[in-house]
């Protein structure tokens, strides 16, 4: 179906596309096929996977009576979740305030402002952890504001358990691996939970962005942050991917398959290709589905798409690129 009653009704139902050129090196003659598939979440209304959890969190909050007309929504976000919430809030009549690390791309800030959101900047050092801390502080000062809190809101994972996961299985019943980025952990927790029930042999693989030292800063090891949603039992392996590999892969995705994705998708693809290599080495076949979390448009100003990989890596130092 391609006709919807409103933009909000069109969230999800994204295409799953095969990547024959990226899969080719793993397919020697006569071997079982290794195929890599991209779930194009940039095809959602605001251009990212976050439309799914944002809409679901708002709907659940409305159902429970937490969110009522005219309410102010407060959320720590490095961009996409904020953009998704802001779009839905515009259509539903809520005011929005977002806490964002100051080292996020300018495109994201402009988009948020266009959707009428107010932005509070949090210090660059500590990245999203710091945004969460500041948002919690503001929430305490404004008890009437509603913080959906994507890191601990079950509706975040539920959007993927009931949406993303079933869509992928319906399109690719032979799936063997699912690979996604690890941020709030909502995608991996939701899709992981779905596959544990629906097809338990599917391997759930997490790709975690590894930033430059400036982002980790002098973070105290005793005050780290693990999202409340995170359950390690729903994941089979977890990889840390640095900016160099992320940039290299995001460029390969464009050059070989024509897909223009955001930098975090490069990290996810890197982990997916690692799984493909492992399977091919063992002489097995696989159908590996990974998430294209968003398009590259919002990251052009980071400099990741121009010049050499070395230059791009240098430019990303200190930036939150996922």
């Amino acid at each position: 179906m391609t006709r919807y009653d409103s933009l909000l009704a069109s969230v999800g139902g994204t295409p799953l596309v095969g990547l024959p050129r990226l899969s080719a090196p793993f397919n020697a003659d006569g071997r079982p096929q290794v195929r890599i598939w991209a779930k194009l979440e940039d095809r959602n209304p605001t251009g990212s996977i976050k439309d799914r959890p944002a809409l679901r969190m708002i709907e659940e909050a409305e159902k429970s009576g937490l969110l009522t007309p005219g309410c102010t929504i407060l959320e720590p976000t490095s961009g996409n979740t904020g953009i998704s919430i802001a779009m839905a809030a515009t259509l539903k009549g809520y005011r929005t305030v977002f806490v964002m690390p100051e080292n996020t791309s300018e495109e994201r800030r402009q988009l948020l402002r266009m959707w009428g959101a107010e932005i509070v900047s949090s210090p660059a050092a500590g990245g999203s952890n710091e945004a969460v801390r500041v948002a919690k502080q503001i929430a305490a000062e404004h008890p009437d504001w509603v913080m959906l809190y994507q890191y601990g809101n079950d509706a975040n994972a539920l959007a993927h358990e009931e949406g993303t996961g079933p869509e992928i299985l319906a399109d690719l019943p032979s799936i063997t691996h699912f690979v996604a980025g690890l941020g709030t952990t909502g995608t991996l927790m939701g899709v992981g939970r779905f596959f544990r029930k629906a097809k338990a042999e599917v391997r759930i693989v997490a790709a975690e962005p590894r930033y430059g030292e400036l982002v980790y800063g002098l973070r105290n090891l005793d005050e780290g942050f693990v999202p409340e949603l995170y359950d390690a039992d729903l994941i089979d392996s977890r990889f840390s991917v640095g900016p160099r590999d992320a940039v290299r892969r995001v460029r390969e995705l464009l050059e070989l398959e024509g897909i223009f994705a955001g930098i975090s998708t490069g990290a996810i693809l890197h982990a997916a290709l690692g799984q493909a290599a492992k399977v091919a080495k063992a002489g097995e076949g696989a159908d590996i589905a990974f998430v294209v979390a968003d398009g590259g448009w919002k990251y052009l100003s980071t400099g990741a798409y121009e010049g050499t990989i070395d230059e791009a890596e240098d430019r990303l130092e200190g930036q939150l690129w996922a």
Binding site: N129, Y151, G181, G183, Y211, S264
Partner: peptide, 12 residues
């Protein structure tokens, strides 16, 4: 071997 503090990565 890389040692890192846990941070919320890719929190979009």
């Amino acid at each position: 071997v890389v040692i890192l503090p846990a941070v919320a990565g890719g929190a979009r």
